[in-house]
Simulated assay, not measured.
Amino acid sequence: MSQQPLEHFIQQAETQLDQVVDSGTDDELFIASYLHGHFSLIASQALNSEKADVATLDALLTNNLNDAFAQNELEPEDQKKVMTLWQSLLDA
């Protein structure tokens, strides 16, 4: 997981998600767009918290996604793709 400052991580993740628009397949675009929506909401909440860091953002976003998945927002295959994309952003 990234040890960089939260603001820098968010900016880098946003850039990577935006790049999918230029080079991704339709499926990749769908997955990135879905994650981007959840990420934007949670990132704004984390930035408003004094003690938030990348680990906090990860926990909040993972919980948010799991809640959405529990409501059957995505098929299991797409859920895995979203979580894989999120993990790749954390590892970048």
Rank of each mutant, 00 (worst) to 15 (best):
A13R: 01
F9V: 00
Q3S: 13
T56I: 08
E75V: 02
E50Q: 15
L29T: 09
A92E: 05
G37F: 04
Q4S: 10
D53L: 12
D91M: 02
T15K: 02
D78C: 06
S49L: 14
N63T: 08
L17Q: 07
A46N: 07
A43S: 14
Y34W: 11
A70D: 08
L65Q: 04
Q4G: 03
A52Y: 04
T62V: 01
L61C: 07
Q19H: 12
D22M: 15
A55W: 06
T15E: 09
H38N: 09
D58W: 12
A68W: 13
L90H: 14
T62W: 12
S40K: 14
I31M: 12
Q3V: 15
A32N: 05
A46T: 01
N48H: 09
D18F: 14
L74K: 13
A52L: 02
Q79W: 10
E73S: 01
L60M: 11
L85R: 13
T84E: 15
N72L: 13
S88E: 08
E14Q: 10
Q11M: 14
E14K: 04
D18K: 06
E7Y: 12
T62P: 01
A92P: 04
A55N: 03
K81I: 02
P76Y: 11
F69C: 09
Q11E: 12
E77F: 11
N66M: 07
N63M: 02
G24N: 05
Q19C: 03
H38Y: 12
P76V: 11
I10E: 00
L65H: 10
G24K: 02
S49T: 01
K51D: 10
S44V: 03
Q45P: 05
L17F: 14
F30C: 07
D22E: 13
F9W: 01
I31C: 10
D78P: 06
N63D: 01
I10D: 00
H38C: 03
V54Y: 00
L85S: 06
D58A: 03
Q71G: 05
M1A: 07
E73C: 00
L89A: 01
S23I: 15
F69W: 11
E73F: 10
A70C: 11
A13Y: 08
T84D: 15
I31L: 09
S40Y: 14
Y34H: 09
L90D: 02
N66F: 07
A32P: 11
L17V: 14
E50W: 11
L35F: 15
M83S: 03
Y34T: 00
N63Y: 03
L29F: 05
D78M: 04
P76I: 03
F39N: 06
A68P: 03
K51N: 12
S23L: 06
S44C: 05
H8W: 04
Q19M: 09
N66W: 13
N72C: 02
L6I: 08
A32L: 09
Q4E: 03
M83G: 04
L60T: 09
D58V: 05
D18S: 03
N66G: 02
L61Y: 11
Q19Y: 14
Q16H: 15
D91W: 05
H38D: 08
L57R: 02
T62F: 12
T56G: 11
K80N: 08
H38A: 05
T15P: 04
A46C: 11
S2L: 00
